[in-house]
Design a protein around this nucleic acid. Structure first.
Lengths: 179, 179
DNA sequence: AATGATATATATCAAGATGATATATGGAGA
DNA sequence: TCTCCATATATCATCTTGATATATATCATT
């Protein structure tokens, strides 16, 4: 009915590619849109139940390698719903970024504490960017150019962040020398 | 006790500058850290109650211009709590960005629909950046260099986004001409 | 062959956050 | 006078997260 949530549509998008289980959906999301839209089990499993009630997906229980599994498949109605969402305008960006809140109150720290926190943050950003590159190599096999593009966005975003903090670090250090 | 939430600490940070009401806290947050950490009334008012019970803030009811108002003030304990948080390492970034989820599934749209959506998104980003610049002029009067810096981050981030989508738009248009 | 660690798989729950709504007053302008 | 907007507090349904519970399979080590 057009006012469904984004996670509801990501799940439909996953199932549009191929049928899979809730567990697999979680993995796919984490390794694809996870950087700019993640979802937890606590939202995936209840959403799948709701989707089944709405008639947007169907499920069948299978046993694979002796292990129980519930495979979900998208219906035509579910696909229509997904495509309707694809044509809607998108909501504004929401960010939760604690380091910038720290930075906002940086006057409360000593010059050395500031340099320390920014230095550590740069290392964290670099470590995360390395992880992104690993995911990217994995995704290149999928062959979808737009999916590769969004992963590239992640890498570009982290490059922007690292550059930004490197410049700040240089400034903080030179201010320390002046004093 | 050190595992309090970020919003709890932003509120303490607001009150560390000067005593104010919940309504004013909401305004300050929206116009300062709002871009990278926002809070709603539904989290601010209950948090203020909790803070008072914890002894981190005190409140007094005043009447200003005939209108009832509850002014909160930070205590020494509250200030200690805030400073403890300032020395902690920060949590990773969380983003909710619907447009990139659309982009992830862009194969489902026609070339013209893609160009349309990216073009509209660039306009939205530019409009939002203009708003940021207005806030920035307002904040320059505060004089805190780190608070100005985080507002600058917002502008730089939106410049990064606009550049990124401008390049994409050029590519989408040239691909259309080839076909 | 036994042990322990990790991966697969589903499900639920407390705690927190959002967006909306309800309620009420003051001030500005038509 | 009426309407609209800003000020001001509060609550609530809904959604989301992060953690935990439960259970089985796989793999490496001893």
């Amino acid at each position: 009915m057009a006012n469904n949530t984004i996670v509801e549509n990501i799940i439909l998008g996953c199932l549009a590619k191929q049928p899979m289980s809730g567990y697999e959906i979680k993995q796919v999301i984490t390794n694809s849109t996870g950087l700019f839209y993640n979802a937890s089990y606590g939202s995936i499993y209840p959403t799948l139940k709701k989707h089944e009630e709405s008639g947007w997906v169907t499920s069948k229980e299978v046993v694979e390698k002796g292990r129980y599994k519930k495979i979900y498949e998208i219906t035509e109605e579910g696909h229509r719903e997904f495509m309707e969402w694809m044509h809607q305008s998108s909501k504004p960006i929401t960010i939760k970024y604690e380091m910038l809140v720290h930075l906002f109150y940086f006057q409360n720290l000593t010059p050395n504490e500031r340099i320390d926190q920014v230095g550590k943050h740069i290392e964290e950003l670099k470590a995360f960017q390395d992880q992104l590159r690993t995911i990217e190599r994995f995704a290149q096999e999928l062959g979808d150019p737009y999916q590769q593009l969004t992963l590239q966005w992640g890498e570009d975003f982290y490059t922007f962040l690292i550059d930004w903090y490197e410049k700040l670090l240089t400034r903080l250090k030179s201010e320390g020398e002046e004093a």
